[in-house]
Simulated assay, not measured.
Amino acid sequence: MLELQKSLYTTKQLFAKLDRYVDYYEHGNWKNQRVLILGKINLNLNLEDYPFQIRQVKDIVQFEEALFS
């Protein structure tokens, strides 16, 4: 899943979106899925709270670095 975020989400909006991803995952719709959030970073997430991998990058340069790291 690639999340392109043009506007800065509130903390509440971001958690609501991630909660929907967790529900999707827990219903067996994902297997070994990852979420990449590309855009303005307004919150450092505790990545261990999620049953899938999440990576946040602020721009295309960090995205390229994430691909090759």
Results as ranks from 00 to 15, higher is better:
Tyr50Asn: 02
Ala66Thr: 06
Asn29Pro: 07
Asn44Asp: 15
Asn42Val: 14
Asn29Leu: 13
Thr10Met: 05
Tyr24Lys: 03
Asp49Met: 07
Glu26Arg: 13
Lys58Met: 09
Thr10Arg: 11
Glu3Ala: 06
Ile60Thr: 10
Val61Glu: 06
Val61Thr: 05
Tyr25Ala: 05
Asp49Gln: 10
Leu45Gln: 10
Leu43Glu: 07
Gly39Met: 02
Glu3Lys: 06
Arg20Asp: 08
Ser7Asn: 05
Leu18Trp: 11
Leu2Glu: 11
Leu38Thr: 03
Ile60Phe: 15
Lys58Gln: 00
Ile37Trp: 04
Asp49Tyr: 14
Glu3Gln: 13
Pro51Trp: 04
Asn46Tyr: 03
Lys12Gln: 04
Ile60Trp: 01
Tyr25His: 14
Asp19Trp: 11
Trp30Arg: 05
Tyr21Ala: 09
Gln5Lys: 04
Ile54Gln: 12
Asp23Glu: 07
Gln56Asn: 14
Ile41Thr: 02
Phe52His: 12
Phe15Leu: 00
Gln33Leu: 04
Asn42Ile: 08
Leu36Pro: 09
Thr10Asn: 02
Asn46Asp: 11
Gln33Pro: 02
Lys31Met: 07
Gln56Glu: 00
Gln33Trp: 13
Gln33Glu: 09
Asp23Tyr: 15
Tyr50Lys: 01
Phe15Asn: 00
Ala66Arg: 04
Glu26Thr: 03
Leu14Phe: 03
Leu18His: 12
Phe15Gln: 07
Asp49Lys: 13
Ile37Lys: 01
Gln13Thr: 01
Pro51Leu: 10
Phe15Asp: 01
Asn32Tyr: 15
Tyr24Pro: 14
Ser69Asp: 13
Gln62Ile: 12
Lys58His: 11
Trp30Asp: 11
Leu47Ser: 10
Gln13Leu: 08
Ile37Asn: 02
Ile60Leu: 04
Lys31Thr: 14
Val57Leu: 00
Gln62Tyr: 02
Leu47Ile: 02
Met1Ile: 04
Lys40His: 05
Thr11Phe: 00
Thr10Tyr: 04
Ala16Phe: 10
Phe15Pro: 00
Leu2His: 04
Tyr25Val: 00
Pro51Ile: 02
Leu18Cys: 11
Asp59Tyr: 14
Leu45Gly: 01
Leu14Arg: 03
Glu64Pro: 10
Leu14Glu: 07
Gln13Pro: 06
Lys12Phe: 14
